[in-house]
Each structure stands twice: as C-alpha cells, then as structure tokens.
C-alpha cells in the first residue's frame, strides 16, 4: 500500500485528513499541492517530508464541505491531465522542430 491515513482526524468529519505517501517526495507533493491549493472549496493544503532519511511524504487537506478524499482524487486526476497535455504538446513541438 502506498497511501495510508494519519490518525487523529476521526472526530472532525471527512473534510480534513493527512495522507501518508510511501516512497514519494517533493516531486509529487509540491506539484499536487500547487493544484489542490487552487481549488474552490479547499481551506488548507500542504505537504511535508518529515525526515529526509525516511522516504515518506505527509499530505494534509482541509476543506469546507467536500470530503478530503474526493479532493485528493480530483487533484491526482488533474495532475494526470497536466502530464498528458505536456507530453502531447512536447511531442508535437519536437516533431515540428525536426521538420524544419
């Protein structure tokens, strides 16, 4: 399992959670944070790598109404879309560059 939940948020409803990502770091954390922070309903979103020698990344989401899990899924989907778009655009530009 790559994702788990940090205990402590059981009493505060589904709107706030801290997820622990195994084997992830700033690469995913920062990119994902940058998307999720700009969602309408999100009150707070941030990430931390608690210790440099452990390959773990903590990802905190707090929202007003939407469940945090839903926001996380939406963020991952959007990041995936960004990657797809970047690849398409880059491949198109390389083709164009090789033509000229």
């Amino acid at each position: 399992m790559k994702i788990s939940e940090l205990p402590g948020d059981e009493d505060s409803g589904a709107t706030c959670r801290t997820y622990v990502f195994q084997n992830e770091s700033h690469t995913l954390g920062n990119a994902l944070k940058c998307i999720i922070n700009r969602y309408e309903d999100v009150e707070f979103c941030g990430y931390t790598v608690p210790h440099p020698a452990e390959s773990k990344m903590h990802f905190r989401i707090q929202t007003r109404k939407t469940p945090a899990l839903e926001i996380l899924k939406r963020g991952l989907k959007d990041l995936q879309k960004v990657c797809d778009h970047t690849m398409d655009l880059f491949e198109k530009e390389v083709k164009e560059f090789n033509k000229s």
């Binding site: 989907k77 990041l79 995936q80 990657c83 797809d84 690849m87």
Partner: peptide, 19 residues
C-alpha cells in the same frame, strides 16, 4: 523528458487506482 512526464503520470494513475 517524455519519460519523466510519463513517470509522473503513471504515479498519479497508480495512486488513483489504489484510492
């Protein structure tokens, strides 16, 4: 570069599948 972007895409995909 393409490989790098693909790795990030696949990461998102596998995390989504797990969620």
């Amino acid at each position: 570069f393409i490989q790098a972007v693909k790795i990030l895409r696949d990461k998102c995909k596998s995390l989504l599948d797990e969620l």
